[in-house]
Structure formats: C-alpha cells, structure tokens
C-alpha cells in the first residue's frame, strides 16, 4: 500500500530546535507539507481547524502535554482515528503503557534516528 506523502503533518514540540530537526528529516523522506505547534493546546486548535493526516508529538510540554493532546484527539469524534506518534525522552515502562492505553499509534524514544522515524511513520500510515 502506497503512502500519500503530500498529506499535512503536524509536529508538536516545545523545543524549536527539535521542530526544525523533525521538519528537515521529514523533508528528506519527502513529507513537505509540515506544520508546527509548540504545545498541546496550540496543536489541538490546529488539528480541529485543519486537515492533517499525521501528528508527531513530544510528551513533556506545558500547559497541555503530549499525553493530554493524545487523549483530546482520541475523544474528538472528528480526530479520533488520526495517526499519532509520540516522540519523547520519557522512556519508562509506565509512560509507554500509559501512551498505548491512551491510543498512541507508535512511540519513538529520543534520541532517535532518521531510519526509526521513517519506519514508524510508514507503519502507522499503512495501518491507518
């Protein structure tokens, strides 16, 4: 199954540098329609207003965390099937389990490499 790389992707992180890194890595694998948000609240507003096919979000942000964003997305009738990848430095078992129970599509631990990002994106979009 081919992946539509022209889809809009929303990346969410409170570190501008991280947004820039992910944006560039996405560009290298031909995802060029990328928008950004620096916390969960801003991301949720953009998701509700826009037409996105994938969310890639950090966890540790304020005031709304990535987990809260995920819960809001899964509770929203319009967004609940949105592929959602968490990219975070939180690598404890309880974090992964909590994210999975909240409906995360995949989970990438920082620091990560481009191959992991590509592989997880393909996996969640094929199953979407």
């Amino acid at each position: 199954m081919s992946i539509d790389k022209s889809m809009n992707v929303l990346i969410v992180d409170d570190y501008k540098t991280m947004l820039r890194i992910i944006r560039n890595l996405l560009k290298q694998i031909d995802f060029n329609n990328v928008d950004e948000a620096t916390d969960g609240g801003e991301a949720l507003a953009k998701l509700r207003a826009g037409n996105f096919g994938l969310v890639i979000s950090d966890w540790n942000m304020a005031p709304m965390t990535g987990l809260q964003l995920l819960q809001e997305v899964r509770a929203d009738a319009k967004l609940k099937h949105m592929p959602f990848i968490m990219i975070t430095a939180e690598s404890k078992v309880e974090n992964v389990v909590t994210a999975k129970q909240a409906g995360v599509s995949n989970y990438i631990v920082k620091p990560f490499n481009a191959e992991t990002l590509r592989e997880k994106i393909e996996k969640v979009l094929v199953h979407a």
């Binding site: 540790n60 690598s91 309880e94 974090n95 992964v96 389990v97 990560f112």
Partner: peptide, 22 residues
C-alpha cells in the same frame, strides 16, 4: 509521575525495548 525527562542510559529503555513492549 509520568514527567521524568531523559533517563540515564543505564536505566533507560531503548527503542527495541519499547517496540517489544508495544
């Protein structure tokens, strides 16, 4: 309790551990 930031390498799960858990 879920906001701990990066773990020390000796205490952290790596990507393959997380993939197995998922």
């Amino acid at each position: 309790a879920l906001l701990n930031g990066p773990q020390l390498p000796s205490q952290a799960m790596d990507q393959s551990d997380i993939d197995r858990l998922l």
